[in-house]
Simulated assay, not measured.
Amino acid sequence: MNVQVGAERTPDRTALAAAAITVFFWASAFVSIRSAGEHYSPGALALGRLATGALVLGIFWAARREGLPPRAAWPGIAWSGVLWFGLYFVALNWGEREVDAGTAAMLVNVGPILIALLGGRFLGEGLPRTLFAGLAVSFAGAVVVGFAVRGSGDASVLGVVLCLVAALTYAAGVVTQKPALRHATALQATFFGCLIGAVLTLPFAGVLVSEAAHAPVSATLNMVYLGVFPTALAFTTWAYALSRTTAGRMGATTYAVPAIVVLMAWAVLGELPTAAAVAGGVLCLAGVAISRRRSPARADG
């Protein structure tokens, strides 16, 4: 067992540091996906990232001799593997082929609202009225982003939809992983979740081999980077921190991701979201902030 009852209310400094590591590397993932996605299709990129992540995590899992997770942890690990490591990766990769990295990050980061909504319903973390107000504001922001990118063609609108699908599968993955962490270690939950995601994307193996033969080295290195750092490292530090606080509170730690992504994308890719997309993204994040407001009596979630 790796969760203490009191630890869910007040995360220790190590957990906060783990969350900070996650935020940084997840932000960098949006930029790497955007770059590698020019040469790798969504499914192939997901498989390459997951296979790399599973290999790295498997080495550490074997070295630490942690063994198999307890039976009670498997439902949560399996669902998070399918929803988060599998469907989320493919949806995000596809969405980032249609919209820039900064816009994608702002859309995906409506996830904390969905985490709070699902966590309140299924994990008993509460459903305050501010949650629904924030959901309405974020939905309005997503609509604004949709109109902002509409001038680029239907594919860009599709990108908005795919990023929102990614937000939903991300939220569902977090909420299903949370109960598993009452029984499994962070490494066990991450390794086996990643392994399940890799198995789920195996149908793209032939495409991955074909594209790898023609992709530039820089694109392949980006894919390997995604597997080692944003996946193997950052998902493990996320699980470690999640085991020590609520799902809703952990979701809120990703507020900083879009700002970091915009700066990274500008520096590395030379791209910036349009002013209208930024306005819509700010509305999305404002909705997240509203949803996380608590009255003094509900300040625990």
Rank of each mutant, 00 (worst) to 15 (best):
T185F: 00
V199N: 05
G280P: 14
Q4P: 01
A267R: 06
G6N: 11
W61Q: 15
P70W: 08
V257P: 10
G197C: 11
S210C: 04
D100I: 02
A78Q: 00
L16N: 10
L158V: 14
F235D: 03
V199A: 14
F192I: 04
H183I: 01
T201Y: 07
L162P: 07
L123I: 11
S152P: 00
T254C: 09
A167C: 05
R182Y: 01
T236A: 13
L83H: 01
A140N: 04
W238E: 10
K178W: 01
R298G: 11
A232N: 04
N222R: 11
L202S: 12
A205I: 14
T22H: 06
A155I: 06
F25A: 10
V165N: 06
R97K: 13
L283N: 09
E96G: 03
S210D: 14
L117A: 15
L202N: 12
F122E: 03
T22A: 11
R298I: 05
L45T: 04
M250Y: 12
L283Q: 10
F192P: 02
M264H: 11
R49V: 02
T14Q: 02
V23G: 10
G76H: 08
F147C: 06
R121C: 08
N109H: 15
A234G: 13
F204A: 15
G159T: 05
L127D: 09
W26E: 10
F147Y: 13
I115R: 06
T103A: 01
E125I: 04
T185M: 00
W61E: 10
A136V: 12
V3L: 08
V199Q: 05
N2I: 04
A213V: 05
P70E: 11
Y240R: 11
E96R: 01
